[in-house]
């Protein structure tokens, strides 16, 4: 399933990655090579085979309902690209 420019653009938008005009052609070519590789899957006989999401057949462990997290606020806020009054800042979101 080769993908066209529109699909690549839509996918890049979903992934929130800006495509540079310069490398677009190159990218389409590479993506189609990769998809060519993974398209071998279409020949696989998987009728009646269950999908496998985890390597081990184990159940989700549970955690007691206890407050255990320590306060990392100062450390965390120091990492923020833009911060004010303890909040992370982003360009205004219009609702």
């Amino acid at each position: 399933m080769a993908i066209d420019h529109t699909t690549v653009e839509r996918t890049a938008h979903l992934a929130r990655i800006r495509l540079e005009d310069g490398d677009a052609e190159d990218l389409y070519g590479r993506l189609n090579e990769i998809l060519g590789l993974v398209d071998q899957l279409q020949q696989a006989d998987v009728d009646g085979i269950e999908p496998m999401a985890h390597p081990l057949d184990l159940d989700q462990p549970l955690r007691p309902d206890e407050v255990t997290a320590s306060d990392n606020r100062d450390k965390i806020l120091r990492l923020a690209p833009a911060e004010e009054d303890g909040c992370f800042l982003v360009p205004r979101v219009i609702e």
Binding site: A82, E84, D85, C87, F88, L89, V90, V93
Partner: peptide
């Protein structure tokens, strides 16, 4: 929560 007031035209994020 996204806070739209009090951040000088930006949006503040409180998690």
């Amino acid at each position: 929560k996204s806070l739209h007031e009090g951040f000088g035209g930006m949006t503040g994020i409180d998690l």
